[in-house]
């Protein structure tokens, strides 16, 4: 490593609504999308590179994402393949706490994690939604997520018949 070059240089990113955020290279590399971009810039480009525009992420969400990547910048990130095999895994209490946010924010976070390709964050946030689905009735799920009930009475009957076994106590 070069002596006069900081080991973890500053990088700037700009949200869709034009807010600039400063973070470090190490953190931002957790995003597969940005990693790909930076690799294409090539030799010595990082310092001279301007702010990276992220047109699909608004400032509120980007702030949350940056908080997460900065906390996890030194952790080894699992690959998407490893995440696929995960079962009921241990969740870091910090992450658990971090994900306490309203649903709209959570949706935006999921969309951002997907766009930025941060597998671990995507897994955590989708899992969070799954936890909310668990142990609820269909009606409770509908009202929680604001989903319209679009079944016809005949369809409801057919589905109920098919799934009777699931409600047996």
């Amino acid at each position: 490593m070069d002596i006069d070059r900081p080991s973890d240089p500053q990088v700037s990113v700009v949200s869709s609504d034009g807010t600039m955020f400063h973070t470090t290279l190490k953190s931002i590399l957790l995003s597969g999308t940005i990693k790909d971009m930076i690799e294409h810039i090539g030799e010595g480009g990082v310092e001279n590179m301007g702010a990276i525009p992220l047109q699909n992420v608004d400032s509120k969400t980007l702030e949350i994402v940056i908080k997460w990547i900065e906390h996890h910048k030194d952790n080894i990130q699992p690959t998407s393949e490893e995440i696929k095999d995960k079962t009921a895994d241990f969740i870091d209490p910090w992450d658990e706490n971090f994900l306490e946010m309203d649903l709209d924010k959570l949706y935006n976070l999921i969309t951002a994690a997907n766009y930025l390709n941060i597998p671990q964050l995507l897994w955590l946030s989708t899992r969070k939604i799954a936890m909310l689905i668990k142990n609820r009735t269909p009606q409770e799920i509908r009202s929680l997520f604001n989903i319209e009930d679009d079944w016809t009475p005949q369809e409801i009957e057919a589905v109920q018949k098919e799934n009777q076994w699931c409600e047996e106590k």
Binding site: T111, T126, A130, I141, I147, E148, D150, E155, V159
Partner: peptide, 26 residues
């Protein structure tokens, strides 16, 4: 949320929750 994200969410569910979820909407 795009469909493939919804599928990701569902893949975190156990079988019973999946059956219940499949009743939520079409």
């Amino acid at each position: 949320l795009p469909y493939h994200i919804l599928v990701k969410i569902f893949s975190n569910l156990d079988t019973k929750s999946l059956v219940i979820s499949s009743k939520v909407c079409q």
